[in-house]
């Protein structure tokens, strides 16, 4: 069946949408609010709404529908809330031939970086993290956030400038 005629109301199609978009939707909301539980709730709400309105949403538009709903839910609930991002801690360097001093410095830098990212304005942060963590192209970010590619690029640049200035020289 081609995408144009697929019905969101069918369980299979709905699940397909969920599997394709839920993770990235979750990340998107998480970058915005920095609260895992809240992000999960919003993702859940967005998909419930999609199901309830399944007859009104075209399959190919479901993605932007989901992101729009998630954005609005976020604005309703958690706008202005102070955000503390807690990234999953992963060893970002597993090489062992580095000196302990270097490793320590790297660790310190990671901590600083996380804090500075968390302190970024929400709009810059979501663009930056969608690009860097989810490896999304600017065009895709523009679709997700509902702003133009130009604006995405501007926010990206601003985010880097801010990070650079706050981290200073190493």
């Amino acid at each position: 069946m081609d995408d144009e005629t697929k019905s969101v109301c069918e369980q299979i199609n709905y699940e397909q949408l969920f599997n394709t978009h839920s993770k990235s939707l979750f990340n998107f909301v998480y970058y915005k609010c920095g609260d895992r539980q809240q992000a999960e709730d919003i993702v859940q709400d967005a998909f419930v709404r999609l199901w309830n309105n399944c007859s009104k949403v075209i399959f190919t538009k479901a993605k932007s529908y989901l992101y729009t709903i998630a954005r609005n839910l976020f604005l309703n609930e958690v706008a202005h809330k102070k955000v503390v991002l807690q990234h999953q801690s992963v060893p970002f360097n597993d090489r062992t031939n580095e000196s302990p001093e270097f490793l320590l410095e790297e660790k310190e830098f990671m901590v600083k970086l996380k804090k500075v990212i968390a302190d970024l304005p929400e709009k810059q942060r979501e663009v930056f993290l969608l690009s860097r963590i989810d490896k999304k192209k600017y065009s895709e970010i523009s679709e997700i956030t509902g702003i133009s590619v130009k604006a995405v690029e501007k926010r990206m640049s601003l985010a880097l400038i801010t990070l650079r200035e706050k981290l200073g020289n190493i």
């Binding site: 993702v43 992963v90 970086l113 963590i133």
Partner: peptide, 27 residues
């Protein structure tokens, strides 16, 4: 150098785990 480091380091960041299957069954 700083920007390169920011870029490299940030690409190693990970979003928290997301248990999509649990959420799907809940949904």
């Amino acid at each position: 150098p700083v920007l390169k480091k920011i870029n490299d380091a940030s690409q190693n960041l990970k979003a928290p785990t997301f248990n999509d299957q649990a959420l799907l069954s809940k949904l």
